[in-house]
Design a protein around this nucleic acid. Structure first.
Lengths: 210, 210
DNA sequence: TTATAAACAGGATGATCAACCTGTTTTGGA
DNA sequence: TCCAAAACAGGTTGATCATCCTGTTTATAA
Protein backbone atom coordinates (compact mmCIF):
# COMPACT_ATOMS: atom_id res chain seq x y z
CA UNK A 1 0.00 0.00 0.00
CA UNK A 2 2.78 2.38 0.95
CA UNK A 3 4.62 1.13 -2.11
CA UNK A 4 1.66 1.78 -4.36
CA UNK A 5 1.31 5.33 -3.05
CA UNK A 6 4.99 5.96 -3.72
CA UNK A 7 4.64 4.52 -7.22
CA UNK A 8 1.76 6.83 -8.04
CA UNK A 9 3.33 9.86 -6.37
CA UNK A 10 6.62 9.34 -8.19
CA UNK A 11 4.86 9.31 -11.55
CA UNK A 12 2.57 12.22 -10.71
CA UNK A 13 5.30 14.46 -9.29
CA UNK A 14 7.36 13.71 -12.36
CA UNK A 15 4.59 14.34 -14.86
CA UNK A 16 2.65 17.18 -13.25
CA UNK A 17 4.91 18.39 -10.48
CA UNK A 18 4.44 18.56 -6.73
CA UNK A 19 2.03 21.47 -6.43
CA UNK A 20 -0.07 20.40 -9.38
CA UNK A 21 -0.59 16.92 -7.93
CA UNK A 22 -3.32 16.91 -5.31
CA UNK A 23 -3.60 14.21 -2.67
CA UNK A 24 -7.04 13.51 -4.05
CA UNK A 25 -5.53 12.73 -7.43
CA UNK A 26 -2.99 10.43 -5.84
CA UNK A 27 -5.62 8.67 -3.73
CA UNK A 28 -7.76 8.04 -6.77
CA UNK A 29 -4.86 6.91 -8.92
CA UNK A 30 -3.54 4.59 -6.24
CA UNK A 31 -6.96 3.36 -5.13
CA UNK A 32 -6.11 4.32 -1.57
CA UNK A 33 -8.31 5.88 1.08
CA UNK A 34 -7.47 9.16 2.74
CA UNK A 35 -6.93 7.42 6.03
CA UNK A 36 -4.42 4.99 4.59
CA UNK A 37 -2.49 7.73 2.91
CA UNK A 38 -2.51 9.82 6.05
CA UNK A 39 -1.33 6.82 8.04
CA UNK A 40 1.79 6.25 5.97
CA UNK A 41 2.46 9.89 5.09
CA UNK A 42 1.05 12.35 7.62
CA UNK A 43 1.66 15.29 5.31
CA UNK A 44 2.15 15.86 1.63
CA UNK A 45 5.66 17.03 2.40
CA UNK A 46 6.48 13.73 4.08
CA UNK A 47 5.31 11.92 0.98
CA UNK A 48 7.47 14.07 -1.26
CA UNK A 49 10.52 13.53 0.94
CA UNK A 50 9.96 9.78 0.70
CA UNK A 51 9.70 10.01 -3.07
CA UNK A 52 12.94 11.97 -3.20
CA UNK A 53 14.86 9.72 -0.83
CA UNK A 54 13.57 6.40 -2.08
CA UNK A 55 12.72 6.92 -5.72
CA UNK A 56 14.56 9.88 -7.20
CA UNK A 57 17.83 8.84 -5.60
CA UNK A 58 17.31 5.31 -6.90
CA UNK A 59 16.58 6.59 -10.38
CA UNK A 60 19.89 8.46 -10.50
CA UNK A 61 21.70 5.40 -9.20
CA UNK A 62 20.20 3.12 -11.81
CA UNK A 63 20.44 5.51 -14.73
CA UNK A 64 23.77 7.10 -14.02
CA UNK A 65 25.84 5.88 -11.10
CA UNK A 66 25.72 2.15 -11.76
CA UNK A 67 26.36 2.41 -15.53
CA UNK A 68 29.27 4.80 -15.01
CA UNK A 69 30.85 2.51 -12.42
CA UNK A 70 30.53 -0.49 -14.68
CA UNK A 71 31.81 1.28 -17.78
CA UNK A 72 35.32 0.87 -19.13
CA UNK A 73 36.06 4.51 -18.29
CA UNK A 74 34.32 7.62 -17.06
CA UNK A 75 34.08 9.11 -20.52
CA UNK A 76 32.76 5.90 -21.96
CA UNK A 77 30.23 5.65 -19.12
CA UNK A 78 28.97 9.17 -19.67
CA UNK A 79 28.75 8.52 -23.38
CA UNK A 80 26.76 5.33 -22.83
CA UNK A 81 24.28 7.01 -20.51
CA UNK A 82 23.65 9.86 -22.94
CA UNK A 83 23.19 7.34 -25.72
CA UNK A 84 20.89 5.11 -23.69
CA UNK A 85 18.73 7.97 -22.44
CA UNK A 86 18.44 9.55 -25.88
CA UNK A 87 17.48 6.20 -27.37
CA UNK A 88 14.88 5.64 -24.67
CA UNK A 89 13.37 9.09 -25.21
CA UNK A 90 13.16 8.47 -28.93
CA UNK A 91 11.52 5.12 -28.30
CA UNK A 92 8.93 6.67 -25.97
CA UNK A 93 8.37 9.67 -28.21
CA UNK A 94 7.87 11.81 -25.14
CA UNK A 95 10.24 13.66 -22.82
CA UNK A 96 9.33 13.84 -19.17
CA UNK A 97 12.66 15.33 -18.11
CA UNK A 98 15.09 14.35 -15.42
CA UNK A 99 13.28 13.39 -12.19
CA UNK A 100 15.89 15.05 -10.05
CA UNK A 101 15.94 18.32 -11.96
CA UNK A 102 12.17 18.45 -12.21
CA UNK A 103 11.76 18.31 -8.45
CA UNK A 104 14.89 20.35 -7.75
CA UNK A 105 13.55 23.32 -9.67
CA UNK A 106 10.15 23.23 -8.04
CA UNK A 107 11.12 22.39 -4.47
CA UNK A 108 14.63 23.64 -3.80
CA UNK A 109 13.46 27.06 -2.70
CA UNK A 110 10.17 25.84 -1.23
CA UNK A 111 11.59 24.12 1.81
CA UNK A 112 15.08 23.58 3.27
CA UNK A 113 14.45 19.88 3.84
CA UNK A 114 13.58 19.40 0.19
CA UNK A 115 16.62 21.35 -0.86
CA UNK A 116 19.05 19.38 1.28
CA UNK A 117 17.66 16.04 0.17
CA UNK A 118 17.93 17.04 -3.47
CA UNK A 119 21.41 18.52 -3.08
CA UNK A 120 22.59 15.24 -1.60
CA UNK A 121 21.52 13.37 -4.71
CA UNK A 122 23.32 15.84 -6.96
CA UNK A 123 26.45 15.45 -4.83
CA UNK A 124 26.36 11.64 -5.00
CA UNK A 125 25.83 11.80 -8.74
CA UNK A 126 28.82 14.03 -9.29
CA UNK A 127 31.02 12.12 -6.90
CA UNK A 128 30.40 8.83 -8.67
CA UNK A 129 31.65 10.35 -11.93
CA UNK A 130 34.60 12.06 -10.28
CA UNK A 131 35.56 8.81 -8.57
CA UNK A 132 35.48 7.05 -11.91
CA UNK A 133 37.83 9.66 -13.35
CA UNK A 134 40.18 9.11 -10.45
CA UNK A 135 40.06 5.36 -11.07
CA UNK A 136 40.89 6.03 -14.71
CA UNK A 137 43.82 8.15 -13.65
CA UNK A 138 45.19 5.39 -11.48
CA UNK A 139 45.20 3.25 -14.58
CA UNK A 140 47.07 5.86 -16.59
CA UNK A 141 44.19 7.54 -18.39
CA UNK A 142 42.77 11.05 -18.09
CA UNK A 143 45.93 12.62 -16.75
CA UNK A 144 45.01 16.16 -17.63
CA UNK A 145 41.42 15.97 -16.41
CA UNK A 146 40.16 17.52 -13.19
CA UNK A 147 37.76 14.92 -11.73
CA UNK A 148 35.41 17.42 -10.09
CA UNK A 149 35.27 19.68 -13.13
CA UNK A 150 34.61 16.80 -15.46
CA UNK A 151 31.84 15.44 -13.25
CA UNK A 152 30.23 18.83 -12.88
CA UNK A 153 30.23 19.53 -16.59
CA UNK A 154 28.85 16.09 -17.37
CA UNK A 155 25.98 16.48 -14.92
CA UNK A 156 25.35 20.08 -15.89
CA UNK A 157 25.35 19.40 -19.61
CA UNK A 158 23.04 16.43 -19.14
CA UNK A 159 20.66 18.37 -16.93
CA UNK A 160 20.58 21.35 -19.23
CA UNK A 161 20.21 19.29 -22.37
CA UNK A 162 17.38 17.38 -20.74
CA UNK A 163 15.71 20.68 -19.83
CA UNK A 164 15.73 21.70 -23.45
CA UNK A 165 14.67 18.26 -24.61
CA UNK A 166 11.69 18.46 -22.26
CA UNK A 167 10.77 21.94 -23.40
CA UNK A 168 11.12 21.08 -27.06
CA UNK A 169 9.69 17.59 -26.61
CA UNK A 170 12.52 16.21 -28.68
CA UNK A 171 15.65 14.22 -27.88
CA UNK A 172 17.70 16.42 -30.23
CA UNK A 173 19.50 18.38 -27.50
CA UNK A 174 20.63 15.14 -25.88
CA UNK A 175 21.90 13.88 -29.23
CA UNK A 176 23.70 17.14 -29.99
CA UNK A 177 25.24 17.18 -26.56
CA UNK A 178 26.48 13.64 -27.07
CA UNK A 179 27.91 14.55 -30.47
CA UNK A 180 29.72 17.56 -29.02
CA UNK A 181 31.06 15.41 -26.20
CA UNK A 182 32.40 12.80 -28.58
CA UNK A 183 34.00 15.46 -30.74
CA UNK A 184 35.75 17.04 -27.76
CA UNK A 185 36.91 13.60 -26.64
CA UNK A 186 38.45 13.00 -30.04
CA UNK A 187 40.10 16.40 -29.89
CA UNK A 188 41.48 15.70 -26.43
CA UNK A 189 42.93 12.45 -27.69
CA UNK A 190 44.53 14.05 -30.71
CA UNK A 191 46.01 16.81 -28.57
CA UNK A 192 47.76 14.31 -26.35
CA UNK A 193 50.69 15.24 -28.58
CA UNK A 194 50.80 18.22 -26.19
CA UNK A 195 54.26 17.77 -24.63
CA UNK A 196 53.15 18.90 -21.17
CA UNK A 197 50.45 16.29 -20.98
CA UNK A 198 52.76 13.52 -22.05
CA UNK A 199 55.37 14.44 -19.50
CA UNK A 200 52.81 14.69 -16.74
CA UNK A 201 51.50 11.27 -17.53
CA UNK A 202 54.92 9.64 -17.29
CA UNK A 203 55.63 11.33 -14.01
CA UNK A 204 52.36 10.32 -12.45
CA UNK A 205 52.67 6.78 -13.66
CA UNK A 206 55.94 6.50 -11.85
CA UNK A 207 54.96 8.30 -8.67
CA UNK A 208 51.40 7.26 -8.15
CA UNK A 209 51.85 3.72 -9.42
CA UNK A 210 50.29 0.61 -8.06
CA UNK B 1 -0.88 48.89 -13.13
CA UNK B 2 -0.42 46.18 -15.72
CA UNK B 3 3.29 46.77 -15.38
CA UNK B 4 3.17 46.45 -11.60
CA UNK B 5 1.28 43.17 -11.85
CA UNK B 6 3.89 41.84 -14.27
CA UNK B 7 6.67 42.97 -11.95
CA UNK B 8 5.16 41.16 -9.00
CA UNK B 9 4.24 38.07 -11.00
CA UNK B 10 7.72 37.82 -12.48
CA UNK B 11 9.29 37.85 -9.04
CA UNK B 12 6.73 35.48 -7.54
CA UNK B 13 6.86 32.94 -10.34
CA UNK B 14 10.62 33.01 -10.12
CA UNK B 15 10.80 32.66 -6.35
CA UNK B 16 7.85 30.38 -5.61
CA UNK B 17 6.83 29.05 -8.98
CA UNK B 18 3.59 29.31 -10.91
CA UNK B 19 1.38 26.92 -8.97
CA UNK B 20 2.62 28.08 -5.59
CA UNK B 21 1.82 31.71 -6.39
CA UNK B 22 -1.87 32.45 -5.89
CA UNK B 23 -3.59 35.38 -7.53
CA UNK B 24 -4.45 36.57 -4.03
CA UNK B 25 -0.76 36.75 -3.19
CA UNK B 26 -0.06 38.69 -6.35
CA UNK B 27 -2.96 41.08 -5.75
CA UNK B 28 -1.76 41.80 -2.24
CA UNK B 29 1.86 42.20 -3.28
CA UNK B 30 0.98 44.48 -6.17
CA UNK B 31 -1.71 46.39 -4.28
CA UNK B 32 -4.16 45.63 -7.05
CA UNK B 33 -7.81 44.75 -6.84
CA UNK B 34 -9.23 41.55 -8.25
CA UNK B 35 -11.12 43.46 -10.86
CA UNK B 36 -8.04 45.24 -12.13
CA UNK B 37 -6.09 42.04 -12.37
CA UNK B 38 -8.93 40.29 -14.12
CA UNK B 39 -9.24 43.22 -16.51
CA UNK B 40 -5.64 43.04 -17.72
CA UNK B 41 -5.23 39.27 -17.42
CA UNK B 42 -8.49 37.34 -17.70
CA UNK B 43 -6.87 34.13 -16.50
CA UNK B 44 -3.81 33.13 -14.55
CA UNK B 45 -2.51 31.42 -17.65
CA UNK B 46 -2.73 34.68 -19.61
CA UNK B 47 -0.68 36.36 -16.92
CA UNK B 48 1.95 33.65 -17.05
CA UNK B 49 2.17 33.84 -20.83
CA UNK B 50 2.69 37.60 -20.56
CA UNK B 51 5.45 37.07 -18.01
CA UNK B 52 7.13 34.55 -20.30
CA UNK B 53 6.84 36.62 -23.44
CA UNK B 54 7.64 40.01 -21.95
CA UNK B 55 9.89 39.31 -18.99
CA UNK B 56 11.60 35.96 -19.26
CA UNK B 57 12.50 36.53 -22.90
CA UNK B 58 13.83 39.98 -22.00
CA UNK B 59 15.90 38.52 -19.16
CA UNK B 60 17.62 36.09 -21.51
CA UNK B 61 18.22 38.88 -23.99
CA UNK B 62 19.79 41.15 -21.41
CA UNK B 63 21.77 38.51 -19.58
CA UNK B 64 22.92 36.41 -22.49
CA UNK B 65 22.10 37.51 -26.01
CA UNK B 66 23.22 41.13 -25.83
CA UNK B 67 26.51 40.43 -23.98
CA UNK B 68 27.40 37.61 -26.36
CA UNK B 69 26.73 39.79 -29.39
CA UNK B 70 28.84 42.59 -28.00
CA UNK B 71 31.71 40.36 -26.93
CA UNK B 72 34.94 40.02 -28.89
CA UNK B 73 34.08 36.40 -29.65
CA UNK B 74 31.51 33.77 -28.79
CA UNK B 75 33.81 32.05 -26.32
CA UNK B 76 34.71 35.31 -24.67
CA UNK B 77 31.04 36.25 -24.48
CA UNK B 78 30.08 32.97 -22.85
CA UNK B 79 32.94 33.34 -20.43
CA UNK B 80 31.89 36.85 -19.52
CA UNK B 81 28.30 35.85 -18.86
CA UNK B 82 29.33 32.97 -16.62
CA UNK B 83 31.65 35.28 -14.76
CA UNK B 84 29.10 38.05 -14.42
CA UNK B 85 26.32 35.74 -13.25
CA UNK B 86 28.54 33.93 -10.76
CA UNK B 87 29.73 37.26 -9.37
CA UNK B 88 26.17 38.51 -9.07
CA UNK B 89 25.07 35.35 -7.25
CA UNK B 90 27.96 35.67 -4.84
CA UNK B 91 27.07 39.30 -4.24
CA UNK B 92 23.44 38.45 -3.54
CA UNK B 93 24.30 35.42 -1.43
CA UNK B 94 21.24 33.68 -2.78
CA UNK B 95 20.51 31.65 -5.91
CA UNK B 96 17.07 31.95 -7.45
CA UNK B 97 18.01 30.00 -10.56
CA UNK B 98 17.51 30.75 -14.22
CA UNK B 99 14.09 32.31 -14.89
CA UNK B 100 13.67 30.40 -18.11
CA UNK B 101 14.61 27.03 -16.67
CA UNK B 102 12.53 27.54 -13.56
CA UNK B 103 9.37 28.08 -15.58
CA UNK B 104 10.34 25.59 -18.28
CA UNK B 105 10.48 22.75 -15.78
CA UNK B 106 7.20 23.60 -14.15
CA UNK B 107 5.16 24.55 -17.19
CA UNK B 108 6.51 22.76 -20.25
CA UNK B 109 4.34 19.72 -19.69
CA UNK B 110 1.44 21.63 -18.15
CA UNK B 111 0.23 23.35 -21.30
CA UNK B 112 1.27 23.38 -24.97
CA UNK B 113 1.13 27.16 -25.16
CA UNK B 114 3.54 27.47 -22.26
CA UNK B 115 5.81 24.91 -23.81
CA UNK B 116 5.95 26.59 -27.20
CA UNK B 117 6.60 30.02 -25.71
CA UNK B 118 9.42 28.66 -23.58
CA UNK B 119 10.92 26.61 -26.41
CA UNK B 120 11.07 29.75 -28.53
CA UNK B 121 13.20 31.50 -25.95
CA UNK B 122 15.57 28.56 -25.74
CA UNK B 123 15.86 28.58 -29.52
CA UNK B 124 16.62 32.30 -29.68
CA UNK B 125 19.20 31.92 -26.94
CA UNK B 126 21.02 29.14 -28.74
CA UNK B 127 20.79 30.83 -32.10
CA UNK B 128 22.41 34.01 -30.81
CA UNK B 129 25.42 32.01 -29.65
CA UNK B 130 25.59 29.95 -32.82
CA UNK B 131 25.41 33.11 -34.90
CA UNK B 132 28.30 34.57 -32.95
CA UNK B 133 30.36 31.45 -33.65
CA UNK B 134 29.60 31.83 -37.33
CA UNK B 135 30.68 35.46 -37.17
CA UNK B 136 33.90 34.35 -35.50
CA UNK B 137 34.45 31.85 -38.26
CA UNK B 138 34.06 34.50 -40.91
CA UNK B 139 36.86 36.33 -39.14
CA UNK B 140 39.10 33.29 -39.14
CA UNK B 141 38.48 31.97 -35.66
CA UNK B 142 36.76 28.79 -34.42
CA UNK B 143 37.35 26.82 -37.57
CA UNK B 144 36.86 23.43 -36.01
CA UNK B 145 33.77 24.37 -34.00
CA UNK B 146 30.23 23.35 -34.88
CA UNK B 147 28.10 26.46 -34.13
CA UNK B 148 24.97 24.57 -33.10
CA UNK B 149 26.86 22.12 -30.92
CA UNK B 150 28.80 24.86 -29.20
CA UNK B 151 25.66 26.88 -28.54
CA UNK B 152 23.79 23.88 -27.21
CA UNK B 153 26.56 22.87 -24.85
CA UNK B 154 26.97 26.42 -23.60
CA UNK B 155 23.26 26.77 -22.84
CA UNK B 156 22.99 23.26 -21.43
CA UNK B 157 26.03 23.61 -19.19
CA UNK B 158 24.81 26.97 -17.94
CA UNK B 159 21.31 25.70 -17.28
CA UNK B 160 22.51 22.58 -15.54
CA UNK B 161 25.12 24.39 -13.49
CA UNK B 162 22.49 26.91 -12.44
CA UNK B 163 20.20 24.07 -11.42
CA UNK B 164 22.84 22.74 -9.11
CA UNK B 165 23.72 26.19 -7.85
CA UNK B 166 20.09 26.73 -6.98
CA UNK B 167 19.78 23.39 -5.24
CA UNK B 168 23.02 23.85 -3.34
CA UNK B 169 22.44 27.58 -2.80
CA UNK B 170 26.00 28.24 -3.83
CA UNK B 171 27.60 29.68 -6.95
CA UNK B 172 30.26 26.95 -6.90
CA UNK B 173 28.86 24.95 -9.82
CA UNK B 174 28.86 28.07 -12.00
CA UNK B 175 32.46 28.79 -11.02
CA UNK B 176 33.55 25.22 -11.66
CA UNK B 177 31.79 25.21 -14.99
CA UNK B 178 33.56 28.40 -15.94
CA UNK B 179 36.91 26.96 -14.89
CA UNK B 180 36.32 23.81 -16.93
CA UNK B 181 35.31 25.94 -19.90
CA UNK B 182 38.45 28.05 -19.71
CA UNK B 183 40.60 24.97 -19.40
CA UNK B 184 39.04 23.39 -22.47
CA UNK B 185 39.46 26.67 -24.36
CA UNK B 186 43.16 26.71 -23.49
CA UNK B 187 43.43 23.11 -24.61
CA UNK B 188 41.67 23.88 -27.87
CA UNK B 189 44.07 26.76 -28.49
CA UNK B 190 47.13 24.68 -27.76
CA UNK B 191 45.86 21.96 -30.07
CA UNK B 192 45.61 24.44 -32.91
CA UNK B 193 49.01 22.99 -33.72
CA UNK B 194 46.79 20.51 -35.51
CA UNK B 195 47.96 21.04 -39.11
CA UNK B 196 44.49 20.74 -40.58
CA UNK B 197 43.14 23.54 -38.41
CA UNK B 198 45.96 25.87 -39.29
CA UNK B 199 45.60 25.28 -42.98
CA UNK B 200 41.84 25.76 -42.82
CA UNK B 201 42.24 29.04 -41.06
CA UNK B 202 44.57 30.47 -43.71
CA UNK B 203 42.26 29.37 -46.44
CA UNK B 204 39.21 30.92 -44.93
CA UNK B 205 40.96 34.12 -44.09
CA UNK B 206 41.74 34.54 -47.74
CA UNK B 207 38.35 33.50 -49.04
CA UNK B 208 35.98 34.99 -46.55
CA UNK B 209 38.05 38.01 -45.71
CA UNK B 210 36.98 41.62 -45.77
C1' DT C 1 -7.56 -16.82 23.37
C1' DT C 2 -6.59 -12.28 24.38
C1' DA C 3 -4.24 -7.93 24.44
C1' DT C 4 -2.16 -4.40 21.75
C1' DA C 5 -0.87 -1.81 18.09
C1' DA C 6 -0.57 -1.04 13.42
C1' DA C 7 -3.22 -0.51 9.16
C1' DC C 8 -6.86 1.26 7.00
C1' DA C 9 -11.78 3.38 5.89
C1' DG C 10 -14.57 7.34 5.08
C1' DG C 11 -16.00 11.50 5.98
C1' DA C 12 -15.68 16.31 8.15
C1' DT C 13 -13.45 20.78 8.29
C1' DG C 14 -11.83 25.13 7.45
C1' DA C 15 -9.05 27.39 4.42
C1' DT C 16 -7.90 28.79 -0.14
C1' DC C 17 -8.22 28.95 -4.83
C1' DA C 18 -9.29 30.88 -9.77
C1' DA C 19 -12.84 32.83 -12.05
C1' DC C 20 -16.48 35.86 -12.57
C1' DC C 21 -19.86 39.70 -12.14
C1' DT C 22 -21.94 43.95 -11.18
C1' DG C 23 -21.07 48.69 -10.28
C1' DT C 24 -18.11 52.95 -10.22
C1' DT C 25 -14.41 55.91 -11.76
C1' DT C 26 -11.30 57.64 -15.11
C1' DT C 27 -9.88 58.74 -19.64
C1' DG C 28 -9.91 60.35 -24.39
C1' DG C 29 -12.13 61.96 -28.37
C1' DA C 30 -16.07 64.54 -30.69
C1' DT D 1 -19.48 69.71 -22.62
C1' DC D 2 -20.86 65.18 -23.55
C1' DC D 3 -20.41 60.45 -24.46
C1' DA D 4 -18.42 55.97 -24.94
C1' DA D 5 -14.95 52.93 -23.81
C1' DA D 6 -11.43 51.51 -20.99
C1' DA D 7 -9.83 50.94 -16.27
C1' DC D 8 -10.69 49.61 -11.97
C1' DA D 9 -13.20 48.27 -7.29
C1' DG D 10 -14.94 44.83 -4.28
C1' DG D 11 -17.22 41.04 -3.34
C1' DT D 12 -19.26 36.26 -4.55
C1' DT D 13 -19.18 31.67 -6.17
C1' DG D 14 -18.43 26.91 -6.47
C1' DA D 15 -14.79 23.99 -6.50
C1' DT D 16 -10.77 22.04 -4.53
C1' DC D 17 -7.34 21.65 -1.33
C1' DA D 18 -4.51 19.44 2.77
C1' DT D 19 -5.32 17.95 7.09
C1' DC D 20 -7.41 15.66 10.72
C1' DC D 21 -10.67 12.73 13.33
C1' DT D 22 -13.41 8.88 14.68
C1' DG D 23 -14.28 4.15 13.91
C1' DT D 24 -13.24 -0.55 12.08
C1' DT D 25 -10.33 -4.24 10.52
C1' DT D 26 -6.11 -6.83 10.44
C1' DA D 27 -1.81 -8.53 12.08
C1' DT D 28 1.25 -9.83 16.01
C1' DA D 29 2.69 -11.62 20.15
C1' DA D 30 1.94 -13.27 24.76
Amino acid sequence: MRRKVLDVAEVAFQARGYHASSLGDLMTAAGVSGGALHHHFPTKKALALAVIDERVAAAIKETWIAPVRQAASAREGVRQVFEAVAAELERQGFVRGCPLNNLAHELSLADPEFRIALAGIFAAWRQAIADKIRADQQEGREQGTDPEHFALVAVAAYSGAMSMAKTEQHAGPLRDCLAAFERSAAQAQSSQGDPGARRRRRVLRRFGGT
